[in-house]
Amino acid sequence: MVKRPVSLIYLCLIFVFLYAPIAVLIVFSFNATRSTYSWGGFSLEWYRALFQDRQIMRALYYTVLVASLSAVISAVAGTAAAVGIHRMKARIRRIFLALNNVPVLNPDIVTGISLMALFTALHLRLGFGSLLLSHITFSIPYVVLCILPKLRQLPAEVTEAAMDLGATPLYAFYRVVIPEIAPGIFTGLLIAFTLSIDDFVISFFTTGSGVNNLSIVVYSMARRGINPKINAVSTLLFAAVFILLLIINKRDAAAKQLEV
């Protein structure tokens, strides 16, 4: 229908459109001058400035702290939730699966303001605690979605086999069910970590008391215009998210190969 060279050029243009902004950002993070207009030579000046910026460093600290805590807590809670949902009766399960999907499908801004309203109603001061709770709230559904398929693949007989061999139900759960779904839990943990690092909108509404993550700092800086330090932060964040997703995909690919 479309001639070959024309279609290839078209696809190339789309990829230029998709990748040019990212490439430009990365390139200018190494620019020696403030300009995003002309190249003033290679320099790590903005990375140095970045690491001396106390506000950014504090935000980095909170970003990593919240991401680590929420990833670990979501992985544990999400595993319990997934097992719980899996054991529910079909009709109740459908209701809770739908409820589980609400934070996944709802616009982030609605999740953000509704959690903000909840914390206020609970007289919980917006700050580190509310930020962490929000991140756990939006991460658990993804962890659940990672683990449920693994539970479905796990035949009921495997638990029975363990009990048949003398395992109490709890022993069977910790020594058989958990190890068997471990790949799903780990993927969920990585996704929760990535989502947390990546989140802006929900954090924006649910934090306070001077506790900010990197996204919020970037937002407030960017509203005031272009800042070369943001370029450097962005490049670092790209790298972090990219490496994380590479790990997730590698694991998935490896798991698929094992299944085949």
Binding site: E157, A161, M163
Partner: peptide, 21 residues
């Protein structure tokens, strides 16, 4: 007497081996 206290063991139809071990 629960399954895990019976001196009875089962070979399941689909083997049900522990794939993580």
């Amino acid at each position: 007497v629960p399954a895990y206290r019976r001196p009875i063991n089962t070979v399941f139809q689909k083997y049900s081996l522990f794939s993580h071990l």
